[in-house]
C-alpha cells in the first residue's frame, strides 16, 4: 500500500512538471467568470464565446475558472497570473475591485474586464463597456409599439450601473414612442429619475425570474425585459406557459432565441452586447502587440451593441414599426436622437 502511494505521488509530480513545460510555449487566453458561471447564457457565456472564437481562429489555448463565490475572485486571478496566462479576461462589474488589485500587483500581466471602466485607467487593464442604453432604447420603442395592454415591464438582478443602463434605455425608448405617437405606454419596474425599481437581488434564481415576471404580468404588462442573466430563463418559462398573446420576453446580453432554445418562441427580441467581439479584439491586440490599457466602448455605430432579429414573433411587429426602429437607429448613431 505504501509503495503504491509513493508511486502515485512521484507520478503526480512528474505529470505536473510535464504540464508546466507544455504550457510555457503556447499563447493562452484565460477567463474568470463571476458567480453567474459560464453557462449563464448571458454575459459570461458571450465573453467565453469570444475566447473560443479566438481559439478557433488563431489556434491558441484557453483556460477557464468559474467563481462560486466572491471569495474566489482574487485567488482565481492569482492562479492565472501564476499559470502565466498571456491575457486574463474577467467578466463583470462585481469583479472590478479584484481585477484592479490583481492588475496593480502584477504589472507584467495583461488584463481585460467586461463591464467595468476604471477612472483613472490602469496601464495593464482594458475595460470593456457598452452603450447598452442605445440598444435598449430601440427595444423599449419596439415594446411600446407591440404592447396591446399599454403596459410593459422590466426588472433587474442587482441595482448596479451595467444592469440599470438597460432599464434606463428601455424606459427612454418607451417614452420616445409616447412622444412620437401620442401613446401613453407605461413602464413598470423601473423609475429612471429615482433610480429605483424591481430587483431580484441575485443573478441565478430561475424561480425569482418566474415570480417577478408573474407579478408584472398580474399588473397588466404583456412584454417584460428581465436584466438578470440566467434569471430571465424563469420568466421565459412562464411566458411559454401563458402563450405569447399574453406575455412576451425581451432577452438581454446575447440573442436568447438561440441561447435559450427551449423557450425560444417567447423572445420578441434581445438587447445585444457584442462582448464576444470585444473580448476577441482584446486577445488579438495582445497577440499582435498593440495591447494598451484603457477603455473600449461598444456602441450602435461600431456594432458593439444592437438588437436581435424578431425571429418567430416577427408577425407581431408591423413593417411600419420595423422601419421606424431602423430610422431611430440611424438617428441615435448620427446624434439627432438622444437616449437619455
Amino acid at each position: 500500500m505504501k509503495t503504491l502511494t509513493k508511486k502515485t505521488i512521484s507520478a503526480a509530480v512528474v505529470a505536473s512538471l510535464v504540464g508546466l513545460s507544455s504550457a510555457a510555449h503556447a499563447f493562452t487566453a484565460c477567463q474568470v467568470t463571476d458567480i453567474g458561471g459560464v453557462d449563464d447564457k448571458g454575459f459570461n457565456a458571450t465573453a467565453w464565446k469570444g475566447v473560443q472564437d479566438a481559439v478557433a481562429k488563431h489556434g491558441i489555448d484557453s483556460k477557464l475558472l468559474e467563481s462560486k463565490s466572491e471569495t474566489d475572485y482574487m485567488p482565481h486571478l492569482g492562479s492565472f497570473v501564476a499559470e502565466g496566462c498571456d491575457v486574463i479576461v474577467s467578466v463583470g462589474f462585481l469583479m472590478g475591485e479584484a481585477t484592479a488589485t490583481a492588475a496593480k500587483e502584477n504589472s507584467n500581466s495583461k488584463f481585460s474586464i467586461v463591464d467595468f471602466a476604471y477612472n483613472p485607467t490602469i496601464p495593464n487593464v482594458v475595460g470593456q463597456v457598452f452603450a447598452t442604453d442605445q440598444a435598449a432604447f430601440l427595444a423599449g420603442y419596439l415594446a411600446a409599439g407591440v404592447s396591446k395592454t399599454g403596459i410593459v415591464g422590466t426588472f433587474g438582478g442587482i441595482n448596479i450601473p451595467p444592469v440599470t443602463v438597460f432599464m434606463d434605455g428601455f424606459a427612454a425608448g418607451v417614452s420616445h414612442h409616447n412622444e412620437m405617437k401620442g401613446t401613453s405606454v407605461q413602464v413598470l419596474g423601473w423609475d429612471p429619475s429615482a433610480k429605483e425599481g424591481l430587483f431580484t437581488g441575485n443573478f441565478n434564481s430561475l424561480e425569482d425570474g418566474r415570480a417577478f415576471a408573474q407579478n408584472l404580468y398580474d399588473e397588466g404588462a404583456d412584454i417584460v425585459m428581465p436584466v438578470a442573466g440566467p434569471v430571465s430563463q424563469g420568466s421565459a418559462a412562464l411566458a411559454a406557459e401563458l402563450g405569447t398573446d399574453n406575455l412576451m420576453i425581451i432577452g438581454v446580453d446575447a440573442d436568447q432565441y438561440i441561447k435559450d432554445a427551449k423557450n425560444k418562441s417567447v423572445y420578441l427580441t434581445s438587447v445585444l452586447k457584442a462582448m464576444d467581439a470585444t473580448v476577441m479584439g482584446v486577445i488579438e491586440s495582445v497577440m499582435d502587440g498593440s495591447f494598451e490599457g484603457g477603455l473600449t466602448v461598444g456602441t450602435l455605430a461600431n456594432n458593439g451593441v444592437g438588437i436581435a432579429p424578431f425571429h418567430d414573433l416577427s408577425s407581431a411587429v408591423s413593417s411600419e414599426l420595423a422601419a421606424e426602429i431602423e430610422s431611430i437607429r440611424s438617428g441615435i448613431i448620427d446624434g439627432s436622437i438622444s437616449v437619455n
Binding site: I9, A11, A12, V13, A15, S16, G19, P75, A82
Partner: peptide
Amino acid sequence: IFIAYSSLFIGSLGSLNALSE
C-alpha cells in the same frame, strides 16, 4: 483525469502558495 487528480493534489499541498490557500 490523471491531470485533474494530480492538480487536485498539487494545488492543495504541492507548493507554499497551495498550502497557504
